[in-house]
Computed example of a mutant assay.
Amino acid sequence: MAFERRLLMRERGTGVLEKLWLIPWTFVMLLSAVAAVGYVALYSAGGGSAEPYASKHLLRFGFGLVMMLSLALVDIRVIARFAWVGWLGGVALLVLVALHGNVGKGAQRWIDIGPIQLQPSELMKIMLVLGLAAWFHRASWERVGNLLFLIPPVLMVLIPVGLILKQPNLGTGLITALVGGGMFFAAGVRWWKFAVVAGIAGVIAPIAYDRLHDYQRARITTFLDPESDPLGAGYNIIQSKIALGSGGVWGKGFLQGTQGHLNFLPEKQTDFIFTMIAEEFGFAGAISVLALLALVVVFGFLVALRCRNQFGRLLAIGLATNFFLYVFVNVAMVTGSIPVGGVPLPLISHGGSAMLTVMLGFGLLMSVHVHRDVEFGGSRD
């Protein structure tokens, strides 16, 4: 029955009602469940009050939900046609940040757009996925193996990464580079090229370390030995580990976390929200949250596998990779597995730019799902 419906839609065209039927409402419910976890955690972070974090989180998710469902109805061919505009717009916003951005906590990362304070580096990750998907979607296997063909997409990655590192924003810059690398891999770029890039990165790493800001070098040093500066650079990760361990298996209970509510835990509403969840709901609660987030990632890759057009496949892979890196870096950061880098936990942490970016990405992902049977474009010779 489902196959007959899709075949009929391909012959007659797809109307709005038919597209609404194809929206994966189970996935929408999954995202709502993750956002609900964020509301509960931010309610606790606010000291048992919806203000100032949880209420804004709910409003942002509601707005993002409308945007996501609206974008799901947009034809994937229209999105492919204007993908380059998105990439150029993202770069333009990064340049605007460099020229007129707001400075906060030693970094110039935000711009004011009316009542909204936007962090373009978050948005750029989605725009980069769009741009690379548009470049690679008609490329043949032989074309992807041509080094000259890879120069433009390499520049598409290096330009925004360079602008993001200049802010400075090392964590987001590295994630953006990894998202770009994931897109190259999905497009069929040969393994040996990645090995060459890794070798070059290993050579320039010591030089890059010397050019880092003092606080960035301190993060790396305290990652290796947090106790070397327990009241300074190592304070955040030490308190995070204490909170994680004190939660035990079942946690201390909702609103009963001592590290969070006695303000020992830093940035509990943003970067360290996962630690607060683990303290109050224990190992069981933390694993349950990770399971929900893992289902979101799995759905993204399943959409890519079922899509008939290369643009949609690449777009879905890039968006799923971006979400995975959000989760991986945040959780690895708060558990002390990697240096602290200021990356939020998607759909859970407090923050407007991250919520907007994630929901925009899910809107594009759902458009790929709704239009998964659309075939367009051919291979470049």
Rank of each mutant, 00 (worst) to 15 (best):
V249L: 15
F61K: 01
D271L: 10
G171W: 06
E51V: 13
G361W: 02
R109V: 03
A72V: 08
L130C: 10
G89F: 03
A186N: 06
Y53S: 06
A35T: 14
N102A: 12
F185C: 05
D271H: 09
A278C: 04
L365R: 11
L360W: 14
A83E: 09
M124L: 13
L58T: 06
A92V: 12
V16N: 00
G312K: 09
Q310I: 01
L364C: 06
M333F: 08
A218P: 10
F311K: 09
Y326T: 05
I207H: 06
A278D: 00
F376M: 03
V329M: 10
I220A: 02
K268L: 05
R211E: 12
R313G: 15
V40P: 01
L158T: 08
L99D: 05
K125T: 10
L364E: 09
D271F: 09
G251D: 01
E4F: 14
L69M: 14
V298W: 15
T335I: 10
I164Y: 03
M366Y: 02
G318A: 10
T275D: 12
A54N: 07
L365C: 12
E142R: 14
R10E: 14
V358N: 07
T258V: 15
A320I: 11
L231F: 13
A41M: 15
L178R: 02
L130V: 11
F194A: 05
L96S: 13
H350I: 00
P230Y: 06
H137G: 00
A36F: 15
V37F: 14
G46H: 09
A198I: 08
L118M: 12
F136V: 10
R372W: 00
L314G: 04
Y209M: 06
L364A: 09
E51P: 00
T221E: 14
G251V: 06
A284G: 05
V197G: 05
S240C: 02
G64A: 11
G232E: 09
L17Y: 11
L8C: 02
E142V: 13
I242P: 03
F323M: 04
P52L: 02
A72P: 06
A80R: 15
V329Y: 08
M183V: 14
F3T: 13
W192E: 04
A218Q: 14
G89M: 04
F299M: 07
G46F: 10
L150Q: 01
L295F: 13
L128D: 05
V66N: 04
R219V: 04
K166L: 14
F264H: 06
V196F: 12
G245S: 11
L158H: 02
W135H: 03
A187L: 06
V327G: 00
F223G: 01
Q167M: 08
L69D: 07
Y209D: 01
P346Q: 08
V40M: 13
G361H: 03
L178D: 02
L88A: 15
L150P: 04
S337W: 11
F194M: 00
L73R: 07
K241T: 03
F264K: 01
D75F: 07
A107E: 02
V157C: 14
E280N: 05
V374M: 12
L262R: 12
M9H: 12
G251R: 01
S228C: 01
L174H: 02
A195E: 03
P24T: 09
I273Q: 04
S337T: 12
S49T: 08
V196H: 00
W192Y: 15
L231Y: 13
R380A: 08
L65I: 05
F3I: 13
I287P: 02
T335S: 15
